[in-house]
Write a protein that binds this DNA or RNA. Sequence first.
DNA 1: TTGAATTTTCAATAATTATTGAAAATTAAA
DNA 2: TTTAATTTTCAATAATTATTGAAAATTCAA
Lengths: 167, 167
Amino acid sequence: MKYDEAKHRFIQQWGALGTAWGISRTMAQIQAVLLLSPESMTADDLMEELGISRGNVSMSLKSLIDWGVATKEYKAGERKEYFRAEKDIYRVATQVAHERRKRELEPVLHMLESIKEMDDKEVSKSKREEMKKVGANILDLAKKSDSLLKKFISAEKNWFLNKLMKL
Amino acid sequence: MKYDEAKHRFIQQWGALGTAWGISRTMAQIQAVLLLSPESMTADDLMEELGISRGNVSMSLKSLIDWGVATKEYKAGERKEYFRAEKDIYRVATQVAHERRKRELEPVLHMLESIKEMDDKEVSKSKREEMKKVGANILDLAKKSDSLLKKFISAEKNWFLNKLMKL
DNA sequence: TTGAATTTTCAATAATTATTGAAAATTAAA
DNA sequence: TTTAATTTTCAATAATTATTGAAAATTCAA
């Protein structure tokens, strides 16, 4: 297979994966391009590569940086900004997991904590119990997932340290 | 807090969580209503509860069943169909994880396998290497996540067995 | 300070996705 | 069989989300 075809496929699939998971296609595609690029790239490079507007590139890069999966760099004697993607895919995964927890899961967990106070005699016991049970189970799952993720991360850290030791 | 307010909050937040993760608001809200309901419910119940159309309820329920997180039931001497949500939230999570892997991740993994064949002398070594590296890392992460999920599931199975033993 | 290069913002627009609602299909009781 | 109850489908429409592009803001060299 030609490099260009492989690259095209990677960018398309990565973009599709993004949309399925609630991330804009462009944002995921920009990440894909940066992941494949050995060098950091400018906004103009990305506009050209993906055929998208300057505004879109600017906003998508901002988001990638907010998610903690891309960084901005400056080159000596150059006015333009250069961008680079986080290439350690484990760090990308844990970073995204953390961000999503914070942005999307935490509001749900807060809501569940708050409805623990629910105590309404006007409604049947079984309805109240069902709600308490569902809430408790989700909170419990969240807690267990957290500790699992922590283990995963520390396992990865060790793996990285091992690699270092072997050098 | 009143039961109705708690219920309303749960349904809204669960719906919002759904959209953030690429699941339609209604589908998530129907699941929320079913999770809170001690009894199974009909399409009419759900239409009334959420104020949505019959068609939407029908399609959303079909999706929930496809995802393996809801089931249809028949009551003796009744024409209508009743629906029930999977309430073991661990099973919901692992079910959704499996489905998403199959539907959304697998196409990416196949693509990554196929671009392993990439071998294009027209393009710089560093570009080719970057692509191979990114591909290998993602495949590796997917493999590790799988084994982690497997461990999680078996841990849950044991937890369930333990509960059983204690009875 | 200028002012040209560069980036960001955001209202307008396009593209996508979700929802409706009524017609068609299915089901099962009479 | 009929026929009425119920569910499904899907074209039309609404709602949401993504993208554009040009004006405004920022940055930095002169």
